[in-house]
């Protein structure tokens, strides 16, 4: 496949590990009479690449499953558009890409700690300055 045949938009980030992460049990489907229990993904993260071939308008989703700290090869040499998408996945999900030419934070501050879109990063995980408790 030639790079130019494809619009390589990877919709990145996590498809989800569906497991017993803290706080999830309250929302198990079983609580409303739906007996189905979701299949857990084999690993914590799922990288999804949504590829589109313009001739014929065909779409493909490729998914790679990763454990924490397991790197994935960068696709920037094949699809230049993946540059910022991979930086975003690193920034918000903490997925490392091997061979990315410029893997730095993109949406959060350069000195930010943690990866906000991870499930163990709570909403309100950011300290609030000048709150009433000070």
């Amino acid at each position: 496949m030639a790079a130019a045949d494809y619009l390589g938009w990877g919709s990145r980030g996590v498809a989800g590990y569906i497991g017993n992460a803290a706080g999830r049990d309250l929302n198990r489907p079983g609580s409303q009479g739906l007996e189905r229990t979701p299949e857990p993904k084999p690993k914590r993260f799922a990288m999804s690449y949504h590829l589109l071939a313009i001739p014929g308008a065909r779409r493909v989703r490729v998914q790679a499953w990763l454990d924490e700290d397991e790197p994935v090869p960068s696709v920037v040499p094949v699809w230049p558009t993946a540059d910022w998408h991979e930086r975003e996945a690193w920034d918000l999900m903490g997925i490392r890409f091997e061979g990315h030419p410029n893997l730095s934070r993109i949406l959060m501050d350069d000195d930010w700690e943690g990866h906000p879109l991870r499930k163990d990063y709570p909403i309100g995980g950011e300290p609030v300055r000048f709150s009433g408790e000070e």
């Binding site: 996590v14 498809a15 989800g16 569906i18 489907p29 739906l34 189905r36 979701p38 999804s48």
Partner: peptide, 15 residues
């Protein structure tokens, strides 16, 4: 404009 949605069967979007 693409929207990728993952549902775990619950009342909230998983991703």
């Amino acid at each position: 404009l693409g929207c990728y949605v993952v549902s775990d069967g619950g009342p909230r979007p998983w991703r």
